[in-house]
Amino acid sequence: MRRAHAGEQSVYEEENQKMEEELRHKVTALKAISINIGEEVRGQNKMLKDMDDDMSKVGGFLGSTMNKLKQISRGGYGKMYLYLALFTFAVFFVMYFLIRLS
């Protein structure tokens, strides 16, 4: 009776070792996946920071351009706006005919 019990214990021990090995492989795979996720998050955060910096620069350029336009509009440059509008209209008119001919 004691030997039968020892045989059962050996089977359980082998089964436990097998399950332990499977668990070890799963933990290793999970560790590799979590490391890859961490690297991807760091890369995405760097990209977002770079985009934020670029947008800040664009915002600064746009702000300075708007300030210059405000200065021009206060200066009484009405004729210049008319010429600019006519020039823009002429460019679009020429582009329309060039596209239409091709």
Results as ranks from 00 to 15, higher is better:
72 I>G: 01
81 Y>R: 05
36 N>K: 11
39 E>L: 06
37 I>R: 07
13 E>I: 09
65 T>I: 07
12 Y>R: 13
79 K>S: 15
76 G>E: 09
48 L>V: 12
54 D>A: 10
61 F>I: 07
70 K>C: 08
37 I>Y: 05
79 K>L: 15
8 E>L: 15
89 F>G: 01
32 A>G: 06
61 F>E: 12
38 G>F: 03
84 L>G: 06
98 L>T: 05
35 I>A: 07
5 H>K: 10
60 G>N: 09
65 T>W: 04
42 R>C: 04
45 N>W: 03
67 N>K: 10
63 G>C: 01
58 V>E: 11
93 F>P: 04
31 K>D: 14
58 V>R: 11
85 A>C: 06
77 Y>N: 15
55 M>G: 00
89 F>N: 00
89 F>W: 00
21 E>A: 08
71 Q>Y: 01
45 N>K: 09
34 S>C: 07
70 K>Y: 04
4 A>P: 00
36 N>P: 02
86 L>N: 13
64 S>G: 02
25 H>N: 10
76 G>C: 08
64 S>C: 02
99 I>G: 06
71 Q>L: 15
88 T>F: 02
79 K>F: 04
14 E>G: 04
66 M>C: 05
13 E>N: 12
96 Y>T: 06
19 M>W: 12
99 I>L: 13
74 R>M: 11
75 G>L: 11
32 A>K: 12
99 I>M: 10
21 E>P: 01
56 S>Q: 12
24 R>K: 12
30 L>M: 13
48 L>K: 09
14 E>C: 03
43 G>I: 05
8 E>M: 13
11 V>G: 02
24 R>T: 11
21 E>G: 01
11 V>Y: 06
14 E>F: 03
101 L>R: 00
46 K>Q: 03
77 Y>E: 15
26 K>G: 03
